[in-house]
Design a protein around this nucleic acid. Structure first.
Ligand SMILES: [Mn+2]
Ligand SMILES: [Mn+2]
Ligand SMILES: [Mn+2]
Ligand SMILES: [Mn+2]
Lengths: 225, 225
DNA sequence: TTTTTATCTTAGGCTTGCTTAAATTAATTA
DNA sequence: TAATTAATTTAAGCAAGCCTAAGATAAAAA
């Protein structure tokens, strides 16, 4: 079994690979994990020797099928724990990520499958991210765009939220943003790329950074009236 | 916060201290943790510098109040997790110890308190061990003796079982031994110190080692009739 | 194409927690 | 009490994962 560090490297590589076709560079990983490039280069050598990534010096990194399997296993644990902590034990969606970041590395396959079963084999975690199935399949999220990319006048559903910052999560809770909530885009300011949205009949201004952390789908016209 | 290693040292010192008044020797700890005496001596120095134990070279170790608090915190986490895994997620009492051995080091105070609340502030774990309260108080177990110390003809209740060996737990399950189960001592063999007990109207022979792993209380005469 | 700059890797070093072997102290036996 | 044995600590070294600084390679600019 891979160490905590190695599992975290593999997980990050998987994330970085999702939006890009090119191999992942060591510095991108270093950035994400907040460690030095040097440490990442060393680790790349080791993960490559274990057959978890393919790595050519100066040419970047890709997960091998074996490495991808490990990464998906860790992500599965992470997201199932998050949902369990939120739905069963009543932690807020702001709190679950940090706990899950540790739990993902220590819980056995068997325990995770019990949790999966207990929750009724759910598809999405408390932030809207898809939960990998036991067989490695990842439920699809289609038609997602960032709130910042929505159109003025459009009415949308919140489908997914960036779960990496506690303060953001707490703020979103405070202003009424949660999964599947309806949001209307009232106005977009060119000046600072902030965006004014209507939530629960209140207007509120969201910064560009916040609007980039919220993912939405447009309601079909039929659903609107 | 103490590292995983340090928490394990403190926990073991606490256990070793329970049955003995003398300071705990480094070799006892080394034995229990299955590491070298040398490693334990080194760690003693460090824990002493952090004020978690009192330690004089060659003279053994005691927990300071601060160290005892940490130890009890870890034990609380361990036992609450065990009960949660058994009662909520349906793992067997043979499986929960190993999972809890890892979970005890990573779960936040807040998470543990949620689990405590979810379980209704229980007093005992799946093996009959008392669960330390949030304030550090440990529920009392009185009148416990080892099954090996019971009297022929006596009828007892199983109150606590040694949780350190999976195989033992599974065997006990197979022969019907569980907490609060009634057991009668039918015969004791001098030859190998084994003991014949009646469980569910079956007679079965238990080795000395097994009989030393089961703790019982005598039923009051009034309860016997 | 050559030079400069940016990116990436290697070298050397540190900490934690472990090991074995040697040295020291305490306990036991004579 | 002195000698022997047992228990404990110190010394030296190793692996994992990190760091900073220096060197090598690739990409961009001239
Ligand atoms: Mn998360
Ligand atoms: Mn992690
Ligand atoms: Mn246990
Ligand atoms: Mn432990």
């Amino acid at each position: 079994m891979a160490s905590v560090s190695k599992e975290n490297y593999l997980k990050i590589i998987f994330y970085l690979k999702q939006h890009d076709v090119k191999p992942v560079s060591t510095s991108e990983i270093a950035n994400e994990l907040e460690i030095s490039n040097a440490a990442t280069s060393e680790m790349a050598k080791k993960l490559s020797e274990s057959g978890l990534i393919s790595y050519k010096k100066y040419k970047g990194i890709d997960l091998t099928p074996k490495g991808k399997k490990v990464a998906l296993g860790v992500i599965r644990k992470h997201r199932l724990w998050e949902l369990f902590l939120a739905n069963v034990l009543g932690l807020s969606w702001a709190e679950v990520h940090d706990e899950a970041e540790k739990l993902e590395h220590i819980s056995s396959e068997k325990l995770i499958d019990k949790i999966d079963e207990f929750l009724g084999f759910p598809e999405f975690d408390p932030h809207g991210d898809p939960i990998p199935k036991k067989n490695g399949k990842l439920p699809k999220l289609t038609g997602l765009v960032k709130l910042s990319e929505g159109k003025v006048g459009g009415i949308y559903n919140v489908i997914k939220v960036n779960d990496l910052d506690n303060e953001l999560m707490n703020y979103l809770t405070r202003i009424g943003v949660k999964l599947y909530k309806q949001i209307e885009i009232v106005e977009k300011l060119i000046f600072d790329k902030s965006i004014i949205v209507k939530i629960d009949n209140h207007n509120i201004n969201l910064s560009e950074k916040i609007a980039n952390s919220i993912y939405i789908t447009q309601l079909k016209n039929a659903e609107l009236n």
